[in-house]
Amino acid sequence: MSTTLFGLTGAALVGIGLFGLIVHPTALRKLLAFNLVGAGVFLVFGVLARRAAAAGLAGDPVPQAIVITGIVVAFAATALAATLLARLSGPEEEP
């Protein structure tokens, strides 16, 4: 039951994020929307790991390993995009 709920929540987050990614014109909002999609996808991976509990395991480690990598990548990407945004919104400086 709870896995279904989490799965649906993940799907909803992905949907909202994709909508934002396509509709919003500003880069900062697009970045936030990307993070929303990311949260949804990571939640889906969490559900996948939990589903292995039916097979008698506490949790499948492979999706968990993937999620850790995914979170690191999303974090690094957000940091890179935020840096670019900060440079762009700052005062015009000589390159």
Partner: peptide, 10 residues
């Protein structure tokens, strides 16, 4: 670069 990054991330 920012536009490229957003496309790549999506």
């Amino acid at each position: 670069a920012l536009r490229y990054l957003l496309f790549a991330l999506a």
